[in-house]
């Protein structure tokens, strides 16, 4: 069984690498075939077109796409994604500065989504009130349907403009450097409350519905009725039987959701002026900074593949019978 699991994981890993390679190759060709020229912005009445031509020459943009692609592949195998046209720095050096924030931001939001939704589902089940269940069922649907840009702006109007409780934008105060360690922590947290609510709300609503339905399914199983009849306490049934059984299908969804979350930070980052990778990706697309676009997609794709890969490992840990399903 152990060797079968190991083999499954290796095949899964190799197929992930292939997916990543195909993704980057497809993107490379697509972006170069799309209209637009990264050097157009260097043409102006004052500059003329000489600079634009020089820069095109420097970044080999005049060469055929196939030639550019093979040069790109050979660089990638050496761990070099190229130099950003805009920043004139190695792509990963640029990405890292923005990715670190997005990673932490998304991780906090993800943990909040999972923990709040589980706690909420448990609380609603424990209360066993029909109206409460109905209320959360419909309100979760409503929250899930609100677009992030509407929720973000509404939160700013209520909590920042009207009540003056939270800052409108940014990650820290202008006087951040003069604050004590404790105040620095709270200052950042103070700035992140509204963005986190904006990013987390829809996920909480989705996970809540998912977990609640799973828990209801498990609670209706015969073995739960038998356990109850045997005199096992509700607390033990929930802890030892309902939660582990209900949480299993959540893991696959969570892996995908983490990837979606990573791409979904853009709107929150723009509304709250946060220094994340979503903004970097969009800026690089609009300015046709090809190496940076590919670097951003490569990074996001890697995280998504890794998230799914780890979700599979966790699933395997819980239930060995899933080996074939994962491979498929």
């Amino acid at each position: 069984m152990k060797s079968e699991t190991g083999k499954t994981l290796i095949i899964r890993f190799l197929s992930s690498l292939l997916t990543l390679f195909l993704l980057v190759s497809f993107l490379f060709v697509l972006i170069r075939l799309s209209p637009g020229n990264p050097t157009d912005k260097y043409i102006s009445a004052k500059l003329g077109s000489e600079l634009s031509e020089k820069i095109a020459e420097k970044f080999s943009l005049n060469q055929p796409v196939a030639e550019q692609y093979f040069a790109f592949l050979s660089n990638v195998f050496q761990g070099d994604m190229g130099v950003s046209y805009n920043y004139r720095l190695p792509v990963f050096e640029v990405i890292w500065e923005y990715f670190s924030f997005t990673l932490v931001f998304v991780a906090i939001s993800f943990i909040l989504q999972i923990s709040i939704s589980i706690l909420l589902a448990l609380w609603v089940i424990k209360k066993q009130k029909r109206w409460l269940e109905n209320f959360f069922a419909s309100s979760s649907l409503m929250v899930y349907s609100i677009p992030a840009f509407v929720l973000g702006v509404a939160l700013i109007y209520i909590f920042s403009v009207s009540l003056n409780l939270f800052p409108i934008s940014g990650l820290k105060s202008l006087d951040y450097d003069n604050l004590s360690f404790f105040s620095k922590f709270f200052d950042k947290l103070h700035h992140l409350v509204l963005p986190l609510i904006t990013l987390t709300a829809a996920g909480v609503a989705m996970f809540y519905r998912y977990i609640k339905e799973s828990m209801d399914d498990v609670l209706n199983q015969t073995f739960i009725v038998n356990l109850k009849a045997s005199g096992v306490s509700d607390k033990t049934i929930l802890k030892k039987h309902v939660i582990p059984n209900a949480i299993r299908p959540l893991i696959s969804v969570a892996g995908v959701e983490l990837g979606i979350l990573l791409g979904g930070t853009l709107i929150t980052e723009v509304i709250f002026s946060l220094p994340g990778m979503g903004r970097l990706t969009i800026d690089s697309i609009l300015s046709r900074d090809y190496p940076l676009v590919i670097g951003c997609v490569f990074t996001a794709g890697t995280v998504m593949i890794l998230a799914n890969f780890f979700a599979d490992i966790v699933k395997l840990k819980i239930d060995k019978r899933l080996v074939k399903g994962i491979l498929n």
Partner: peptide, 13 residues
Amino acid sequence: VPDYTSRILQLKR
């Protein structure tokens, strides 16, 4: 502040 509305709100505040 990339968002225009946010810039204006901060100007007013």
